[in-house]
Design a protein around this nucleic acid. Structure first.
Lengths: 116, 116
DNA sequence: TTTAAATATGAATAAATTATCATATGAATA
DNA sequence: TATTCATATGATAATTTATTCATATTTAAA
């Protein structure tokens, strides 16, 4: 068998393996939508800020700039995808990063930046 | 000093810290755009496939479905953001995941899925 | 050196996303 | 309980993005 024929068989085997390990459609969409939540500079800045600790909306807004309504919408997007969580404390709503995976993701991204 | 005054000071200190640690604008945009490349089901599926090993465009297309042109466009997007790399071998172009950080990111995302 | 195979690309359209403005809601305080 | 402060939300306009079709490019083979 020639090298290229052999490689072809190997690749076809790999396609089968890949299809077997492919998460189901709805899970792929779930993962994609969580990456999407991290994929806008405005939202990402909020996460960098929150990676230093929880903050209320007003302080988040003052840290990242822009207007309150925009920040609220961005926070909502991230709440919906469980990137951040929040809790009301009196008149304020305090936001924080939802879990360690998200934090790890942000750290990985920063690291990656340094390797360029 | 009241509890809430104290908390306010703490939060303001945190805003200062966050601003000091904030990556510069262009880096935030760079990271965001890389997350964006991971944020479409069609592209993510390609990455799941490639996480099993390198493949040519035709095989990728057969694994993820859809048409060749669409897959080529998706691969281009990911090439541009250094999510995948490629090398020509004869008539074929073989694609693979660009680096370990991307792989780690994909693994993290899958893990996260399992914790829900 | 013509033809075929594999991949890439440009343009156009369709679809999804974001920001903004005005306003609504919820909680505290006067 | 009227008012004010903090946050959230709905509608819409503006921008981005993905997909498709047609075609170009590159390499190998006849």
């Amino acid at each position: 068998m020639s090298d290229s024929e052999n490689e072809k068989l190997q690749h076809e085997e790999r396609v089968r393996l890949a299809l077997k390990n492919m998460p189901k459609e709805e899970d792929v969409e779930e993962i994609a939508s969580r990456f999407k939540a991290l994929s806008e500079p405005s939202r990402l800045k909020i996460l960098f800020v929150l990676s230093c600790g929880e903050l209320c909306v007003e302080h988040i807004t003052s840290a990242v700039g822009g207007n309150q309504s925009a920040v609220s919408h961005q926070l909502k997007t991230m709440r919906d995808h469980r990137i951040v969580k929040c809790q009301r404390r009196g008149k304020q709503v305090i936001y924080s990063i939802a879990d360690g995976h998200i934090l790890a993701m942000i750290e990985l991204a920063k690291e990656h930046l340094n390797c360029d």
